[in-house]
């Protein structure tokens, strides 16, 4: 789930916490004021209302402050996104094909798998190709999502910083088995990956172990 680490986790979670903190302060302020006013100025306590028509300085204040806050939010969101889209030049390029309802990964040496094996700490670039309808390449653990659109060459990248297996989901509705279109990113230590890669070379099909790794089977 959300236990792993990739370059974007800090960015995404950082923006989230930033907006969440501001939102919570404002939400609590609004709610408490509302509740306080309802009690303090209930008809029993305050039978005679005061018709205050408005207050221009106040209006300006609560226009300007939110404007500054949201521009700050925009800025942090943008900075984080910049890192997501700048793919390092030394990234390993893996072709990802999405079709109803499975993923296929093709490595630079022609190896094909249905599970994505990647070395630890290396930048991985995924070239996203759709064989039929729209899909979306979603790795929640890496805070990574990019749509896979026919006729369009989308790319995404990530760098996994912890060994383990993480879910790949399809996040764009694609029909009957949309919810079963899961696969895994398996992050291996670099030497493990190298030996796996060398061993796989020449075999174009996925190893039997791959299917076992898929969570979707048999459900």
């Amino acid at each position: 789930m959300l236990s792993s680490d990739s370059g974007f986790i800090k960015d995404v979670d950082g923006v989230f916490l930033f907006i969440l903190a501001i939102s919570l302060v404002l939400l609590i302020l609004i709610t408490l004021l509302m509740v306080y006013f309802v009690i303090r100025y209930s008809r029993k306590r305050n039978p005679r209302p005061s018709n205050i028509e408005g207050n221009v300085p106040l209006e300006i204040l609560w226009t300007v402050i939110p404007t500054i806050l949201v521009i700050g939010m925009f800025y942090y969101g943008w900075i984080g996104y910049e890192r997501m889209k700048n793919i390092p030049a030394d990234a390993i390029v893996i072709e990802v094909t999405a079709r109803m309802w499975e993923w296929e990964f093709v490595y630079p040496n022609g190896v094909k798998t249905d599970t994505l094996y990647v070395p630890l700490g290396k930048a991985i670039q995924t070239n996203l190709i759709s064989a039929d309808v729209n899909h979306s390449f979603f790795v929640p653990a890496f805070r990574l999502k990019k749509d896979v659109i026919p006729n369009k060459k989308n790319q995404a990248w990530f760098r996994a910083d912890e060994v383990g297996a993480y879910d790949i989901a399809c996040a764009e509705y694609c029909g009957l088995k949309h919810s079963y279109m899961y696969s895994k990113v398996v992050v291996m230590a670099e030497e493990d990956f190298d030996s796996w890669y060398a061993q796989m070379y020449g075999t174009s099909q996925a190893a039997p172990a791959d299917t076992a790794a898929k969570r979707t089977e048999g459900r």
Binding site: I19, G77, W78, G80, R143
Partner: peptide
């Protein structure tokens, strides 16, 4: 207000990548 604040979260580009869909 809750709907609006969570809308702000999705407006932020980096966060939208995670939250979308």
């Amino acid at each position: 207000s809750i709907g609006g604040f969570t809308g702000l979260m999705q407006g932020a580009l980096a966060l939208n990548m995670h939250l979308h869909d």
